[in-house]
């Protein structure tokens, strides 16, 4: 699996001012692999994901995507990003454009596709996420779940080799989460390489090939979902999972911090 690594991260460091968010991350994601990154808020998992397509500039270390070094100062970052699809927590659809235009405009402006070709690709991808009937709607007329599926379709229309998901269901009402996860599961089944930051343990357990637990800016442990979620070896992982799976059982802690082990 490492022979055809699509994403390779080496000794990645990132600080925001004094706050060291990533403290030396090494991670490889093979072709067609689905990796879920879990961990408490403030653990650096979103920052790690955003370093992969350079939305955040890492302080030290290297990131390779499909053999190209993203962190090379001379890299054509716009060209690299065309191969990396990204889905945001807040959807970030373009509100002044219709659903179809959200999908066609990037294809035409970035890839230089003509009107007919981009419209065809848009229609195909809207069908994939089951939203063909919303083609002419504006994003504000859609539910959160529908908006997120359009956002996924928009990323797919660019023909990416890798998909990054930054807490894609965290901003959704609970009853809408399932539709988005179903689309992601379909993508995983089709063999898409995916890196997913999520709190959805069921999704991680059933869909992920590998689960990575991060805390305090380092990878604490990783392995198959059975290993990491089913039988965590580290105390920090166990603590996090117990709080996540049964929030009502958490007790008031010293310093009342929700970022366990932040100092350590």
């Amino acid at each position: 699996m490492s022979s055809s690594a699509q994403i390779r991260i080496r000794d990645l460091h990132k600080s925001f001012g004094e706050n060291e968010v990533l403290r030396g991350i090494d991670l490889e994601i093979g072709e067609g692999e689905v990796v879920c990154v879990i961990g408490p808020s403030g653990s650096g998992k979103s920052t790690l994901l955003r370093c992969v397509n350079l939305l955040e500039e890492p302080g030290r270390g290297q990131v390779f995507v499909g053999g190209t070094e993203v962190t090379d100062p001379d890299v054509d970052i716009d060209a690299v990003r065309r191969r990396i699809g990204m889905v945001f927590q807040q959807f970030n659809l373009f509100p002044h454009l219709t659903v179809t235009e959200n999908l066609t405009l990037p294809q035409r402006r970035v890839l230089g596709r003509d009107k007919a070709a981009s419209a065809r690709t848009a229609a195909e991808n809207l069908a994939r996420v089951g939203l063909s009937e919303k083609a002419d709607a504006y994003p504000s007329a859609l539910s959160g779940g529908q908006q997120q599926r359009v956002a996924i379709a928009r990323a797919l229309a660019m023909g990416p080799q890798v998909m990054l998901f930054d807490e894609p269901t965290s901003a959704l009402d609970p009853e809408l989460v399932g539709d988005v996860l179903a689309v992601m599961r379909m993508l995983a089944d089709e063999g898409m390489t995916m890196m997913v930051v999520t709190h959805e343990m069921t999704f991680a357990r059933e869909v992920a090939d590998r689960v990575v637990f991060m805390d305090g800016g380092v990878v604490v442990e990783q392995g198959t979902p059975e290993q990491v979620i089913g039988a965590p070896r580290h105390e920090r992982t166990r603590h996090f999972l117990s709080r996540l799976l049964d929030p009502a059982m958490a007790e008031v802690e010293e310093g009342s911090s929700d970022q366990v082990g932040k100092a350590g």
């Binding site: 060209a79 970030n92 373009f94 990037p106 660019m158």
Partner: peptide, 26 residues
């Protein structure tokens, strides 16, 4: 919102293109 620029950049828009096609119309 900052996310608009980020979404455009992550799709491969150059900074100028993203500004003209996505941010300025809004």
């Amino acid at each position: 919102p900052k996310g608009q620029m980020e979404a455009a950049r992550s799709l491969g828009f150059s900074p100028a293109r993203a500004m003209i096609s996505i941010v300025v119309p809004q």
